[in-house]
Design a protein around this nucleic acid. Structure first.
Lengths: 153, 153
DNA sequence: GTTAATAGTTAAACAGTTGAATTATTAAAT
DNA sequence: ATTTAATAATTCAACTGTTTAACTATTAAC
């Protein structure tokens, strides 16, 4: 592939990924309302998915430091959406779960987002979506493998 | 499409977009180094692309409020990477351009990012990339049109 | 039984964001 | 032509999310 062609693909990809992420975030924020930020909703989403998890697990999944997780969890905890439970065997560990209030709020917002995406997804052929996600998954894999990429010179 | 299938696609897409964005950001940050944040580099990138622009234009492109742009521009200006020039006809307008220092730094970091992406892009067939970007562009278009999506109930 | 490692928190500092108020300038109204 | 509107940009206070470094509490290793 020529240098010029690569540059064009890169430029297209960078612009797109930025634009799509931004627009997606904004649309999601409209559905979420003022109760939660996007990151907070995403955190609830993960905990809901796995039922129960720890700060360390969240930090690994979100690829941030543990103190960043503490801050987010504190805000969700202050809103009464999350419960902290100490492990009785290993008392260093704190398990995070959704409270009833957290569950209700998550389901409500998730339902709104689901309807939004449903209204968007109809504009695509099913096969187009499948292929897109397949390449996206491959990209994710490649990025994971390149985690420790360093420049030579 | 069945409800269950939609939910699965949505879940896959949300997880992927989050993960890819995060990993991409981290890789880019490694190339940029400590001189710039990703947002700062992206701002330099846009100004470099269009040669000259205003705060209002940046706010529209990045879909944030103008005061957020002022903050970013201030930091770049303090580093001597950006120049502010008042329009002589309409003295409310301030044109933003890269300084020589800004140009040199941008080119250096952009070159490193370019080499990174080049090393990743080889893992894909050209046709796969084209199709992926095409769907991505369509998604971007659909999101743009849905900007004012509101729930019915 | 002392030393290491681990899980989580705290505090200071910073980037990015919003919203409301402000300044300076230009456009519109009548 | 003078007042009123709108526009471009900035400032300030408040907030979220982030990192780094120091710290507490607990468990594992030797």
């Amino acid at each position: 592939m020529s240098q010029e062609h690569i540059k064009e693909l890169v430029d297209r990809y960078i612009s797109l990924s930025f634009s799509v992420a931004k627009k997606g975030e904004n649309l999601v924020k409209c559905q979420i309302g003022d109760d939660l930020t996007n990151d907070q909703h995403y955190t609830l989403r993960y905990i809901h998915q796995v039922s129960e998890c720890t700060s360390t697990e969240l930090a690994e999944v979100f690829e941030v430091k543990k103190s960043a997780i503490t801050a987010i969890i504190n805000r969700l905890w202050e809103k009464g959406l999350i419960q902290r439970t100490r492990d009785q065997k290993d008392r260093r560990v704190v398990y995070l779960t959704l409270t009833d209030k957290g569950n209700i709020l998550f389901r409500k917002t998730e339902n709104r987002i689901h309807k939004l995406v449903e209204s968007l997804i109809n504009k695509f052929e099913q096969e187009e979506i499948e292929k897109f996600l397949k390449t996206y998954e491959k990209l994710n894999q490649v990025l994971t493998e390149s985690k420790d990429y360093k420049m030579e010179e």
